[in-house]
Design a protein around this nucleic acid. Sequence first.
DNA 1: GGGTTGGTTCCATTATTCGAAACTCAGTTT
DNA 2: AAACTGAGTTTCGAATAATGGAACCAACCC
Lengths: 266, 266
Amino acid sequence: MASGRDGDGTVGKALEVLDQVAAFGRPVRFSELLAQSRYPKATLYRFVQTLTNQGMLAFDDERGTYALGVRLVRLAHAAWRQSSLAPIARPHIDVLSRDVGETVHLAQLDNAQVLYVDKRNAREPIEMYSQAGKVGPAYCTGVGKAMLAFLPEAQLQRILPQQSFHRFTPQTLADEAALRAELGQVAKRGHAFDREEHEPGIICVALPILSAGGRVLGALSVTGTTGRSSLAGLEALVPRIRQTAEAIAAELESWRFPEGMRQAGE
Amino acid sequence: MASGRDGDGTVGKALEVLDQVAAFGRPVRFSELLAQSRYPKATLYRFVQTLTNQGMLAFDDERGTYALGVRLVRLAHAAWRQSSLAPIARPHIDVLSRDVGETVHLAQLDNAQVLYVDKRNAREPIEMYSQAGKVGPAYCTGVGKAMLAFLPEAQLQRILPQQSFHRFTPQTLADEAALRAELGQVAKRGHAFDREEHEPGIICVALPILSAGGRVLGALSVTGTTGRSSLAGLEALVPRIRQTAEAIAAELESWRFPEGMRQAGE
DNA sequence: GGGTTGGTTCCATTATTCGAAACTCAGTTT
DNA sequence: AAACTGAGTTTCGAATAATGGAACCAACCC
């Protein structure tokens, strides 16, 4: 693929505009988009028009601003339901979080980043949608490292150069070499830690969810704070978490062959 | 579905394919898509290719199936956050559902349908993402009627013909005339009921969320069952619900003018 | 080996998109 | 009031990208 980002064809360009609107994080004026856009006025205008009457963008004519449209939310709902991982995992992580009494995250790999697809907050009412769909760095989160450690080398080589290695805390791994070393450990041990590498005071233990064939399907993590928990304490939960991860993987495996879809052994 | 659906340009057609994949509700083979598609093989193939390497679709090469991609979830998250209604309303409906002890829904109008954007289930752990993003009919839900009743005539005329008037229950309004009459009532009264029109045993009362200028921003509903609640009981909650609806509208109004954006009185 | 199904690539034709420039319509300035 | 400004919208010939029939490939199955 050519030089990175470049979208293919008209559709790619239009979707790029969507991302641009998303990046603003608030309703945005046409002129604001134009200022950032690499397309000329008329072209951008047509894109925005098209996206708008496709429901991917919503135009507020009182304010003259564009925001992401409702069709996206509808599609994302469908995505969540058919992604198989999230809906299948949901009851499992429900039980898990109740059992361990801590916050549980479910994540997937989205290109070089971690995408949180579900979350259970132990005791309090859950603040959900605001979390599902959120992306985070892969190199300094428990779920990220748990997944990276089990990736085939080829994919890893594509992903690692894309990591920013921004130092969120003094514990953050600083470069690719350090991460490589850590991933070796994780692979051997079978689970990953986050030792306050992303946020001070926040630690977690994470396990990958692996298919029978060893493919990385996602990851589970249990989070604690340095105040209430310790790494050793979290590590003690590993067998319980592994049980959940394996249950999810197993159910996923059977779900993937809906009805009478014979298939040679994987 | 056949009639005026025609999308604009290439982008429209590609997005149509997305919807198609969404409609399957599960990962889908290329041939399955082709069977339903109005495009020739090569054309559809290109669309699917494009969408896939744009991250809007995800291809599972073990299975040879396409599913909706992660980019959608990421975009939807952004959509939710910048939609202004959902995140602003969230704390309000939290309190409301705690106060009234019943399930609360927050909805918006998505073309001719109702899109649920948030939900608070009174006592049990909430099943959220699985609900947010769901769409429902406008003509036979409380939130739907609450919003329709306050729409300008022009918009109503565009929307009403698109209602299916499927009779979910014996109480479902049967045609446009009946709905028109009902909407008149709702507008006068200020709130709408769902008298088991969508699901037997489920009743609700709903109020629109209106801007200072009278524009429909969304709707709130409180749901009950015929067993535990009555319409009269729900109606008693109207003042409390209205308070929430107005609080949301007010906060929304101020949020819409971020900083120092003077504006003549609306 | 010949047939069938599911998926992928080619490439000449054709329809779409591109984007400079012209235009509109508020406000503002002179 | 006339001229200016700047955001937003429309036009239209040239440039480009989409189109889809057909050919191709690879399994799998008689």
